[in-house]
Simulated scan of single mutants.
Amino acid sequence: MKTKYLDIVLLEDLPFVDLVKKIEKVFNVSLPYENKKGRYIAEGQKGRYKIELIDRFDDLSELLCDEHHVLSLSIHFEEEFNYIVIENEIKKLLKNYDIKWKFGIWKDPSEPIEKNIRKIFPLK
């Protein structure tokens, strides 16, 4: 089984706990969270998606904090991977639940870094 990763930069200006609740509704899944090396990370599984929500704040240092929370999706597949189908599904979910986001970046650890440049943007 292969895996592709989609990291989505969120524009939601909410405390992490409130954002977890909002993302739980989007995917209809429970996302328990814990502090891992200074950052809260909520994790869950829904169908083909492994979902991680990463807090923008780092307890270890203010210098390590990010401007935005990140929604990281791991998508498992066995046969041909169709970016367009997955992208449309994710975009529709985020739009239907009024999740504000800036962009998403696909990552595939099996490909060279220069091939990992596929970006997606919110529906208008």
Rank of each mutant, 00 (worst) to 15 (best):
M1K: 09
K2N: 14
K2L: 06
T3M: 12
K4P: 11
L6T: 14
D7A: 15
I8V: 14
L10R: 14
L11N: 15
E12M: 15
E12I: 15
L14S: 09
L14F: 13
L14K: 14
F16Y: 12
K25N: 07
V26P: 10
V26F: 04
V29E: 03
V29A: 09
P32I: 00
P32F: 05
Y33W: 12
E34G: 13
E34P: 00
K37C: 04
R39Y: 04
Y40W: 05
Y40H: 07
A42D: 09
G44Q: 02
R48T: 00
Y49G: 02
L53M: 12
I54Q: 08
F57G: 01
F57T: 11
S61N: 07
C65Y: 01
E67K: 15
H69E: 12
H69S: 11
S72W: 01
S74E: 11
I75P: 01
I75E: 00
H76Y: 10
F77K: 05
F77A: 06
E78T: 09
F81Y: 12
F81L: 07
Y83E: 08
I84C: 05
I84T: 09
V85M: 03
L93V: 01
L93Q: 05
K95Y: 10
D98P: 00
I99M: 13
I99E: 10
G104T: 09
D108A: 10
E114K: 13
K115P: 04
